[in-house]
Amino acid sequence: MKFKHIPAFIAGSAFALMASISAAQAEKLVIATWDGYTPKDMVEKFKAATGIDLELTMHATNEEIMGKVTASGGEGYDIIFVSSPFAEALKKLDMLAPIDHAKIPNFANLYPEASQLKHDPGNTYSVPYTWGTTGLCYRSDLVKAEPTSWNDLLKPSDELKGKITMLATDRWLMAAAFLADGLSVNTADQANLDKVRDQLVATKKDLLAYDDTTFYSKLVSGEATLVHAWDGWCNYGTAENAKIKYMIPKEGSDLWVDTLVIPKAAKNLDAAHKFIDFIFNAENGKWVVENIMYKVPNKAAMDSVDKAMLTSYPNIAIPPADLLKYEQLRDLGDGMKAFSKTVSEIMAAK
């Protein structure tokens, strides 16, 4: 072998090696989900029930998984857990496979309200996994007065200044201010955007941080006393300190829905449907309520939950009919440009 061919040879073998690394991991149902969002023994149980291997891949945020999925065209995933506005965007990008209800007998376990969701009536391309509200989570022993309104967060009293956090995900951040003003959480109208921008810029001065992953531990440690929170995550705080409570402000909330979708590029559509059916059995739904402390649209699961949970964590008892009164976040389409500019303005403000 001539000397000058050595680098080519090494590069060639390295490529072959790399290709084999990537190829060796392809024969599974790949589920993209949030860390800790599914039962711990799910992989083993699903394997026992169906003989199919599961590989779980974790994303920290909707944005992260959206970036990956748009980059790959959905290739490499069989099931993706995303919040409903993102599911809607994926559908509009024509990247999702239709849901075949005939292959999912456990659909019978769901509340009728589960198929009345505005982003996807009839669950044609997405199925709801969990749902709930967004509101205020607070240390009842450390705040002087119980919060009642979004304005208790947006215009904090002196004792709360520097001890409040708001959700970092832009859609929910803006939703808090939209709701306070009685606006739709899906408006991208410039006048509305400007109005909430001014409010959120003002609020920013009093914030400890924007936080959508550790706000409940900031309540537990006492770093924060009032935070903008999803109901289920507030329950994590309540579990560690019963003085941590959740409330929906009088102006209302949004209805958030985390969904499961199947990308068109999925390798094994049958297995993906089997997985959805498996997730919809009462036992798995019950696990979610008892461990993640989120509400599930699964009636069979909710009915089997220990009633003590409902007293310790009152937000789990919110009935589906009440949830459906709240507006869901929807994909903004072309309105996203104006919306994201407004968010940048808030983020850039001092």
């Binding site: 990537s22 790949v30 993209a32 860390d35 891949t57 974790m58 920290a60 995933y77 992953t213 550790t214």
Partner: peptide
């Protein structure tokens, strides 16, 4: 530049998500 799944999660990516999800 990572692909789908745990199969292409590197240690710094793991550390980042651990930091993001709490101390």
């Amino acid at each position: 530049t990572a692909g789908a799944g745990q199969a292409s999660t590197t240690l710094p990516m793991q550390i980042y998500s651990m930091i993001r999800f709490g101390v």
